[in-house]
C-alpha cells in the first residue's frame, strides 16, 4: 500500500514538472528576443531618423540584476554644459525585450541645468536597455546595458 502511494506521488510530481517545463517553453515561444530587437531598432529609426548613433557620452545607470522586473530604477545622464547653444535635447530609453520597445523620452532645455533624470521601469525579461541622446548640434549618442531579471514585470 505505502509503496504504491509513494510511487503514485512520484508520478504526479514528475507530471507536474513536465507541465511546468511545457509552460516555460510556451512562454519563450511567445516572446522571441529577435523580433523584439527588430521592434526596438524600428522605433529608434522613428525617433532619430537615419542618423547613426555614436557610442559614448550618454550614461545609463541600472542594476545588473533586478530581482523584480516590476520596478527597476534607472538614471540616464549626458555630460553637457547645458548652455543655450550646446545642450542635450532629449534622452530616449528603449528596451529590446519588452512587449513594447518604448520606455520613455525625456526632453531637456538649457534651464534644466543638468542633462540627467531618474525614473523606474518595468522589464518583462532579461534584456538590453538602450539610452539614446540627441544633442543640440544634431549628434546622436547611445549606450546599452544588460539587466538580468528574475521575475518579469509585464503581463500577469
Amino acid at each position: 500500500m505505502i509503496r504504491s502511494s509513494a510511487a503514485s506521488r512520484r508520478t504526479v510530481i514528475k507530471a507536474m514538472g513536465a507541465g511546468a517545463l511545457a509552460m516555460g517553453g510556451v512562454g519563450l515561444a511567445a516572446a522571441p528576443a529577435r523580433a523584439d530587437l527588430a521592434k526596438a531598432q524600428k522605433l529608434l529609426k522613428e525617433l532619430i531618423g537615419d542618423k547613426a548613433p555614436q557610442e559614448g557620452k550618454v550614461r545609463l545607470e541600472m542594476p545588473q540584476i533586478a530581482e523584480n522586473g516590476q520596478t527597476v530604477p534607472l538614471t540616464a545622464a549626458v555630460d553637457s554644459p547645458m548652455t543655450a547653444d550646446n545642450y542635450c535635447k532629449v534622452i530616449h530609453i528603449l528596451a529590446d525585450g519588452n512587449p513594447e520597445a518604448g520606455v520613455c523620452s525625456f526632453k531637456f532645455t538649457p534651464s534644466s541645468g543638468r542633462a540627467e533624470f531618474s525614473t523606474r521601469m518595468r522589464l518583462a525579461q532579461t534584456q538590453n536597455v538602450w539610452a539614446v541622446a540627441e544633442m543640440s548640434d544634431g549628434s546622436v549618442w547611445m549606450t546599452k546595458t544588460e539587466v538580468k531579471v528574475t521575475i518579469g514585470g509585464c503581463g500577469g
Binding site: 516590476q70 520596478t71 527597476v72 547645458m82 528596451a95 519588452n98 513594447e100 518604448g102 520606455v103 520613455c104 523620452s105 525625456f106 526632453k107 531637456f108 532645455t109 538649457p110 534651464s111 534644466s112 541645468g113 543638468r114 540627467e116 533624470f117 531618474s118 525614473t119 523606474r120 521601469m121 518595468r122 522589464l123 514585470g153 509585464c154
Partner: peptide
C-alpha cells in the same frame, strides 16, 4: 523639461530631474 511615458514605466511613476 518634458517626458513622454510608455507602459514600460512602473506603477506609481517616480521622476527626478534638475532645474537651474
Amino acid at each position: 523639461c518634458e517626458m513622454v511615458l510608455h507602459p514600460a514605466i512602473s506603477a506609481n511613476p517616480y521622476i527626478s530631474f534638475f532645474l537651474k
